[in-house]
């Protein structure tokens, strides 16, 4: 039997089941998730603001992700351009390559690739870190010393992730376009000015706005999933591993669902 104080606020004796043990657990879990997210929006506005921790986390999430993001974004730009060329060339439309990669990268690939990489690096990192803090009673230690662990650990990380993922997305987009440009330059001898002229001509304000909104939502999801899984992990080293693993899986799953839903909304807006 696990006597851990998982989510101390909601530790109760739940001996009678409304429907069945499994169904009750699902609904209770959904209730806990809702309460966890609602608490973020409640605590966000009130001091202490833990600015130092937010800056630390922005550094961890943003700056430390740069090498991986740079390499991945650059390679994706090159590969995507290279793979798209033959199809366009078949229709005699190789000149539209900059426009195609611009639309693809800004609308979908940039935000999605950044979010998936961040889900792997950031969500798992947060899940493992908070899970380990839960297991070793560091979160309880904060609570008994009258420090709000949710504010210090969760609000700071979710906020940092929500701020940094859009910044990383912009960076990935630029690096991917650069990769694409280098590939085009090598094959079509297009100048940088012409390339970027065609890039910006192909996209609209709605594309940029949608990409930004999407990356904010992805950032919030990544931070929130990592924090929820870690903060509520069960006792033992197995719990830490599970928290890290399930942070990545859940974050990736939610990112794809969100991508699908946002795409529908944007298409609906575009048709107006």
């Amino acid at each position: 039997m696990d006597l851990s104080n998982k989510n101390t606020e909601s530790t109760r004796s739940r001996r009678r089941y409304v429907v069945s043990k499994r169904l009750d657990r699902i609904f209770l879990e959904l209730g806990d998730v809702y309460a966890f997210i609602a608490r973020f929006f409640k605590e966000l506005w009130f001091p202490p603001y833990e600015l130092k921790e937010i800056i630390n986390q922005c550094y961890e999430i943003g700056v430390r992700s740069l090498p991986l993001i740079s390499l991945t974004g650059f390679i994706i730009g090159i590969v995507f351009t290279n793979q798209s060329r033959p199809s366009l060339a078949d229709f005699g439309a190789a000149a539209l390559l900059p426009a195609l990669i611009s639309v693809a990268i800004i609308r979908a690939i940039g935000p999605l690739v950044t979010a998936l990489i961040a889900a792997g690096r950031v969500a798992s990192g947060i899940g493992a870190e908070l899970g380990s803090m839960r297991v070793t009673e560091q979160i309880d230690a904060m609570e008994v010393s009258a420090t709000n662990p949710y504010k210090f650990l969760v609000v700071s990380r979710v906020l940092a992730s929500t701020l940094m993922i859009p910044a990383l997305t912009m960076y990935t987009t630029l690096v991917s376009l650069l990769g694409g440009y280098l590939n085009i330059r090598q094959n079509e001898q297009t100048s940088l000015t012409t390339f970027f002229y065609q890039v910006f001509e192909a996209i609209t304000f709605l594309d940029l706005a949608a990409s930004s909104v999407k990356s904010v939502i992805f950032g919030f999801t990544i931070g929130m999933v990592g924090c929820y899984k870690g903060y509520n992990s069960s006792k033992g080293t197995e719990g830490v591993g599970k928290a890290a693993n399930s942070s990545v899986v859940t974050a990736m799953f939610l990112i794809f669902i969100e991508e699908l839903l946002i795409m529908q909304v944007i298409n609906a807006l575009r048709s107006f």
Binding site: P48, S132, M133, T136, E137, Q138, D140, A141, E143, V144, S145, A146, T147
Partner: peptide
């Protein structure tokens, strides 16, 4: 809680902080 000190079984020191930062943590707040 400020009037209660709780010494945990496994000490529960904050891993990412030095000893000084661990001790400073409640004081700063």
């Amino acid at each position: 809680r400020l009037k209660i000190g709780f010494s945990f079984q496994n000490s529960a020191l904050y891993d990412s902080m030095t000893v000084k930062e661990n001790l400073e943590f409640p004081l700063i707040r």
